[in-house]
Write a protein that binds this DNA or RNA. Structure first.
Lengths: 202, 202
DNA sequence: TTGACATCAGACACCTCTGTCTGCTTTCAT
DNA sequence: ATGAAAGCAGACAGAGGTGTCTGATGTCAA
């Protein structure tokens, strides 16, 4: 319930070595939590080349570290989506443009997606709230003009979108599909999933 | 690696009260793990109205209990899917029929889906192997005849299918969508996601 | 009815993780 | 160059979890 700030930002100007440590810790957390979403602080510290206590200098608790890691990624994706102008052009085209943009940015954060699997659906939605809020008008616009299936709430489409993108990211990590095909595949899969195609109804 | 049997079946004929205990434990595990996938053995025992040690009489380890709970559901869904004849009729129609059948059976196991979120993608695929094996030929058949997008491996489609059904189940549990709409929505969402629609490609 | 099975109640050893604390040393900023 | 900030090393208490065990009590099946 507490309005925890996503990233514990540059409140106080940190010293150069502190800045380096924080970066190393965040990167290590990203990697460590990718292979094991329950990775301990000790494991993260080890990968960061840092002593465990050092983490607690910058992040008061494990939870805070998690928030910082995910917040960084979500914030970046949110920026990219906003830049892709979800409110411009035909809904289907806008959707594909937005998903493509998000996917590319997500490229740097595929490890992070594994963390999502440790969240309850409610918590997952809470963390993705900025992204979902940005997309909600687009979905409704598409439902009004018949681009997207109108007989479900917009939240349904948003959940499916989220699930597909995350699953695609996981698929990429397994190596079952190459990075080259992945972008086109995820864009079209999402577009097809939300689309309102009368032909499919017998 | 060990070929653990999904359900520790009726090796030895258990006594009537033992049978009752096992059932209560499995049901309690289902519920407990739904609200918290990390629920402890103590919590499960409490909900089952049983002492913790009793669980260990029937399930040697926590892992084994988890296997038993998930195995029961997967086995049932597998049976239902097989009964829906995925190899008969046009691929798209077969897919919709199969998804609808699976979804209905899944109805009793929606709590269980939460457990999936604690599994790595690889582990998730392992547990769903019986289901995926059953669907694999259908996907390939649909790719050959142009029903499903052919430019991705069949495994891609299977992953997206799995992700959508699980997400839909989660969506249902949040109450954001009613049970009445859910079946049609999930069926059409899946069908649209896998479909090969040339019109979407600009 | 009787003996084997199952449960209960409670304890135990063991483990892992978190968060804190205490010196001591290194590194940065001024 | 000097003091403050940051890091290291290692320890600590506390919480919570798992799996095992014992002995007493209840329950089923033949």
């Amino acid at each position: 319930m507490a309005p925890t700030p996503a990233t514990p930002p540059q409140d106080k100007p940190r010293r150069a070595d502190a800045e380096r440590s924080v970066a190393a810790i965040l990167d290590a957390a990203l990697e460590a939590l990718a292979s094991d979403p329950d990775a301990s602080m000790a494991e993260i510290a080890r990968q960061a080349g840092v002593v465990r206590a050092t983490i607690y200098v910058h992040f008061p608790t494990r939870e805070a570290l998690l928030e910082a890691v995910t917040g960084r990624a979500i914030a970046e994706v949110t920026r990219v989506i906003a830049a892709a102008a979800p409110d411009k052009g035909k809904p289907t085209e806008a959707l594909m443009r937005v998903v493509a943009a998000a996917w590319q940015t997500l490229g740097r954060y595929h490890p992070l997606v594994a963390i999502n699997t440790r969240l309850s659906p409610a918590e997952l939605h809470r963390r993705h709230a900025p992204v979902l809020a940005l997309l909600h008008p687009l979905i409704e616009r598409g439902q009004r003009d018949g681009s997207f299936r109108p007989d479900v709430p917009a939240e349904w489409h948003l959940s499916m979108l989220l699930a597909l993108v995350h699953a695609a990211s996981a698929e990429l990590r397994t190596g079952r599909v190459g990075a080259t095909n992945a972008e086109a595949a995820v864009v079209e899969t999402v577009a097809g999933a939300l689309a309102h195609h009368a032909t499919l109804k017998p």
